[in-house]
C-alpha cells in the first residue's frame, strides 16, 4: 500500500447537465510511467484537473501520497509538478523570470543557479533572458518541463506534453520522461494521443471512455493477449483473400491493398496461416505485427460502445 502514489476512486464531475466524469478509478504506483488514455471528450482532462485540484469533483476520492487531496492540497502539490494541456507563461517576462515566479509559489524557492541549471537541463541555455513571447511551441514545452521539475517533485503529471512538437521534440520528451523515472525514481502520469509513444514509455495505463474507466493495468499484460493484428505482404492478394475466407473463416480480414492484407488473428493461428498460404503457392514477403496499443485501444473502445 505504501507504494501507491495516486488512488482515484469513483471520481465524478458534472458541468451543468453534462456529466464529464462518471466513474473513474485508477491507481498509480511509485516509479510508474502511467498512461492515461481515452478519446477526446472521455473525461481525461477533467480527471487530471481533479488530480491537481483545478476542478473540484462532485463525488469520489482522490488520494495522493496516501493523503486525501481535498484536505492536504498544499502538501501534495508541493511534491507534484504538472503541465496541463499546454504550458502557458507570462509572455512579457523572460524564461528566467517565469521560472522564478512559479518557483516562488512552489513551496521551495529555487536559487538563481538552480534556475539556470534547469534551463540548461531542458536545452534553453542562452535563452534565459529572452521574453517567452518569442519562444516557439517546442521551447515553451521545454520551459514547461523546467517549471514542472524545478521544485524537485516526486510526482509529475503531464497532460499531452508532446502536442505540437516535431519528431525530435517528441523523442526528447520521451527520453526525458524515461530519465526521470530511471535516474530519479519519479512517478509520471502521462496523457497523450500518441499511442505509439505511450506504448514505448508507459508501464501501466488506464483507458477511460465516456467518463468511465474501461480498463486499467500493466501495459505488458494488457497487450500480451493472444489477439493480434498482422499485416501480410503477399502476391495475389485477391486470391489469398478468397482462400482465407473459405478455409480459415475464423480470421477477420480487416483491410486489403494490392500488396497487403490486414488480418485479425490469434497468436496460435499464425504458424498455421503461414503454412497454408505457402502450401497454396502464395509468396509471403513479410508478416508484420501492427502497433498493439493502438489496436488494443480501439478494441477496448468498441467493446465499451457495445456494452
Amino acid at each position: 500500500m505504501s507504494d501507491k502514489i495516486i488512488e482515484v476512486q469513483q471520481l465524478a464531475k458534472r458541468f451543468g447537465s453534462f456529466e464529464a466524469v462518471k466513474d473513474v478509478n485508477f491507481t498509480v504506483y511509485k516509479g510508474d510511467v502511467f498512461g492515461f488514455l481515452g478519446p477526446n471528450g472521455a473525461g481525461k482532462s477533467t480527471s487530471i484537473r481533479c488530480l491537481l485540484s483545478l476542478i473540484k469533483p462532485d463525488r469520489g476520492e482522490i488520494k495522493i501520497y496516501g493523503q486525501t487531496l481535498a484536505a492536504n492540497r498544499s502538501h501534495i502539490l508541493a511534491r507534484t509538478g504538472s503541465i496541463i494541456e499546454k504550458p502557458d507563461f507570462y509572455k512579457y517576462l523572460s524564461a528566467y523570470q517565469n521560472l522564478a515566479i512559479f518557483s516562488r509559489i512552489s513551496g521551495a524557492t529555487a536559487s538563481a543557479k538552480e534556475i539556470y541549471q534547469m534551463l540548461d537541463f531542458v536545452g534553453l541555455a542562452g535563452r534565459e533572458k529572452d521574453k517567452v513571447a518569442g519562444f516557439s511551441h517546442g521551447m515553451k514545452q521545454r520551459l514547461g518541463i523546467a517549471q514542472t521539475l524545478l521544485h524537485k517533485p516526486d510526482l509529475i503529471i503531464l497532460d499531452e506534453p508532446t502536442t505540437g512538437l516535431d519528431p525530435q521534440g517528441i523523442i526528447d520528451i520521451r527520453n526525458l520522461i524515461l530519465r526521470l523515472r530511471d535516474e530519479q525514481g519519479k512517478t509520471v502520469v502521462l496523457s497523450s494521443h500518441l499511442l505509439a509513444e505511450m506504448e514505448l514509455i508507459a508501464n501501466r495505463m488506464v483507458i477511460i471512455n465516456k467518463g468511465k474507466t474501461v480498463v486499467e493495468g500493466e501495459v505488458s499484460k494488457l497487450l500480451s493477449s493472444d489477439d493480434l493484428v498482422v499485416q501480410l505482404e503477399i502476391d495475389k492478394v485477391e486470391a489469398a483473400k478468397n482462400y482465407l475466407k473459405n478455409h480459415l473463416p475464423q480470421l477477420e480480414i480487416i483491410d486489403s491493398t494490392a500488396t497487403h492484407l490486414e488480418l485479425a488473428i490469434t497468436k496460435s493461428m499464425l504458424p498455421e496461416l503461414n503454412k497454408l498460404l505457402v502450401q497454396q503457392g502464395f509468396s509471403i514477403y513479410a508478416i508484420e505485427s501492427k502497433r498493439k496499443l493502438e489496436d488494443y485501444f480501439i478494441k477496448m473502445l468498441k467493446a465499451d460502445a457495445v456494452e
Binding site: 491537481l52 485540484s53 483545478l54 492540497r73 498544499s74 502538501h75 501534495i76 502539490l77 508541493a78 507534484t80 504538472s82 496541463i84 494541456e85 499546454k86 504550458p87 502557458d88 507563461f89 507570462y90 509572455k91 512559479f102 509559489i105 512552489s106 513551496g107 517549471q147
Partner: peptide
C-alpha cells in the same frame, strides 16, 4: 485568458493566498 491561472493553481499556494 492567457492560461497562466492554470499553472499558478497547480502550485501549493492556496487560492485564498493567491
Amino acid at each position: 485568458a492567457s492560461g497562466t491561472i492554470r499553472m499558478l493553481l497547480t502550485k501549493p499556494i492556496s487560492r485564498t493566498q493567491l
